[in-house]
Simulated assay, not measured.
Amino acid sequence: MRVSLGVTNFTWPAVNELDAIARQADEGGLDTLWVADHLVQAEPGTEPTDPMLEAYATLGHLTAITERIRLGAMVTAVSFRPPALLVKAVTTIDVLSSGRAWLGLGAGYHQGEATMMGLPLPATAERFEQVEETVRLALQMWSGNDQPFTGTHVSAQNPIGRPLPATRPHPPILIGGAGEQKTLRLVARYAQACNIFDIPDGGRTVRHKLDVLARHCDTENRDPAEIDKTISTRVLPTATIDDITAQLTRLTDLGLDHAVVITSGPWQRTTLNTLIKATTRVA
């Protein structure tokens, strides 16, 4: 079981507390530092006016203060940025971090945020088509092919992607969400990782979603073992090492490879230290 840190809340008394949290996660051996990609605060129990840093500027900053931990957005709503700009941002992070970037992508959902910030949020079917076309554009740019790209929703006359990413053949792609007809099919076709949710039902939903993914992999002639099966799970700030160890063990037993751990409110160094110790136990 690999364990990553998910940062969804930036309401520390001093914003540079993020630096301390990032360095602690890096030195503690966690796999990836994920930041939520919203322009307004969207965590349950918060207000939209609470502090929220833009994801890719934040990830660029984190490349300079960390050494080994991977970096990604969990996840970018596909319609919120021009596709070529998104690919270029991820490529830049990958180059500056010497090959530690993810492309985390999803169809998006937050109509309130889109309305407040003047961002597009097309109909659901169109957004899923945009996800597929954005991934295809990314793969083309990362291969060094700058020929015209023409899709139904995504087009680029001369999509130059230089420099190429440090990660070869390309940064890993995570497609977030658990939709059985579209999302998990796209994971099976294109992605190196999925991200599903920790539903408190004894594991029934998680097992079912992994079975659906396996069936899509069979249709796509893909080995399910090639896909990093990640799950977003929450720990309380008061959780003990034993609590988190049991939680991670439960997820491992469900067939998951990678836990993305979030907490209520901003991460505290004490809670992160407990997570790191539990991760060492599970490993």
Rank of each mutant, 00 (worst) to 15 (best):
V154L: 06
P165F: 02
N273Y: 03
L236P: 02
H216P: 00
E129H: 12
Q157M: 14
R185S: 08
P171F: 06
C194S: 14
G176V: 01
A191F: 06
Q192K: 06
Q157I: 13
I175L: 09
R215P: 00
K182E: 05
P224G: 04
K209G: 06
T245Y: 12
T183N: 07
P237K: 02
T167R: 03
T134I: 02
V131D: 02
G144P: 01
G151E: 02
H208F: 10
V135A: 04
E226Y: 11
G144K: 10
A214L: 00
V135H: 00
T152M: 09
G255A: 09
Q140P: 04
D257T: 14
C217R: 02
D218Y: 05
L210F: 08
Q157N: 13
K229D: 00
L248S: 05
G177S: 08
Q181V: 11
A259C: 14
A156W: 00
A156E: 13
G179Y: 04
H258N: 03
Q268E: 11
F197C: 00
Q181E: 13
V235R: 12
L184N: 05
K229P: 05
T230Q: 12
I231F: 00
V261L: 08
A178N: 09
T152V: 13
T240F: 07
A239D: 12
E129M: 11
D223W: 08
L174W: 07
R234A: 10
D218W: 05
F128C: 06
I196K: 00
I262L: 14
A166H: 13
T270D: 15
P266I: 04
Q181K: 15
A156R: 04
R215G: 11
T245M: 04
T274F: 05
L174N: 03
R168L: 08
T271S: 12
L174I: 06
